[in-house]
Design a protein around this nucleic acid. Structure first.
Lengths: 195, 195
DNA sequence: ACATTTCTTGACATCATGTCCAGTTGACAG
DNA sequence: CTGTCAACTGGACATGATGTCAAGAAATGT
């Protein structure tokens, strides 16, 4: 892979990123134009649209240091704190990836590859949820009627991208309100009353 | 509109209903075949796919008496009870309309008409949420940091179809668990602690 | 029996993805 | 300077879905 090829690849990913960020419907030809190459050249780098979108999310993850940001919650001294830190990290990451996420979710229904890619990424988020829930459980603060899996399902679902879309875009909440309210809501969902 | 025409229309809607219920991807030609007519005849009754899907939801609403079922929560003696009854009514309605809902949500990104239709239906659900929240507020039990709109947004978001899909299909929850947990969760989300 | 509405058949337009191929350009090696 | 290789271009084409159009068949009502 020559350096020119790397440049082109990066130009494509940046172009896809920029266009998707704007929220518009993005065709392969739009991305090609934005990257300054022919539509066919896209297919020399990415065999399908799904591949391109998936590569774009990885590109974004790298650029935005998502791993580091999510890992920050590991420093927490309590389960409750860890949950709050995780909600903050993930909740503030959503808007940055929302354009790509949206495109990938829209393809889920028709494309297996896209579905697997997105579900894999969400599974990673679930692991973060589980770690916080496990710590809460270790602290003896897990709501009595919940087991760890169920509690993880709950937190994970609360933190889904569609929920962010609804509160933030449909209901018009600010990002700060969203994060604040999600911290409270996830706590109340899984931490035993009275703690 | 002759009676034969009515019959055909109904046959189409029933065909669409049945196919969508199965969860598969449904083309216009599939619906035509299932209804026993030509693909072109569909367009004599419904100008576009979106129109057909929208008509199918209305057809379902009628067949399933959704209005009566949602209205049942109006008999509640307290805000808390009203919320529980609403969660139960709507939560148990979701699986019955899920096939059509799924198709309509998938079209949202590309079709204005579909987006408006779906958003209109969701707005009706929001009104049900708001009624419950208003009664809770009147009972003096609304969580102190929430106003009525914000609390309604929260309950409404918790009860969204994507959340149902995630818990029920992705996480494998039973319908009973979903409803039970949603009752608890919506309560904890909007009712002041200690009540 | 006639007229009108409904439905069928088949051809066609459109739009996006993805494939194929012949030819061009640019960099680098000998 | 020249030949080679890889990346890229341009154009044509296949596919699959929605939606349109027009000519005729069939059923229905009067």
């Amino acid at each position: 892979m020559s350096s020119q090829s790397k440049n082109t690849r990066t130009r494509i990913l940046d172009a896809a990123w920029k266009l998707l960020e704007s929220g518009a419907t993005v065709r392969m030809s739009d991305i090609a134009k934005q990257a300054g190459i022919s539509r066919q050249a896209l297919y020399l780098h990415f065999p399908t649209r799904a591949d391109l979108l998936i590569a774009t999310t990885r590109h974004l993850d790298e650029a935005k240091d998502i791993d580091d940001r999510l890992a920050a919650s590991r420093a927490a001294g309590s389960g409750r704190e860890r949950l709050a830190l995780f909600v903050e990290a993930w909740g503030n990451y959503i808007p940055e990836i929302h354009g790509v996420a949206r495109a990938l979710m829209a393809m889920q229904h028709s494309d297996d590859e896209a579905r697997n890619a997105w579900s894999g990424r969400m599974q990673a988020v679930r692991i973060g949820c589980e770690a916080a829930v496990a710590m809460i459980e270790a602290d003896g603060m897990l709501a009595p009627h919940l087991d760890r899996d169920t509690a993880t399902d709950l937190v994970w679902t609360l933190l889904s991208v569609p929920n962010w879309e609804q509160l933030r875009l449909t209901c018009g909440w600010s990002q700060v309100s969203y994060v604040t309210e999600m911290k409270r809501l996830t706590e109340r969902a899984v931490i035993a009353p009275g703690h």
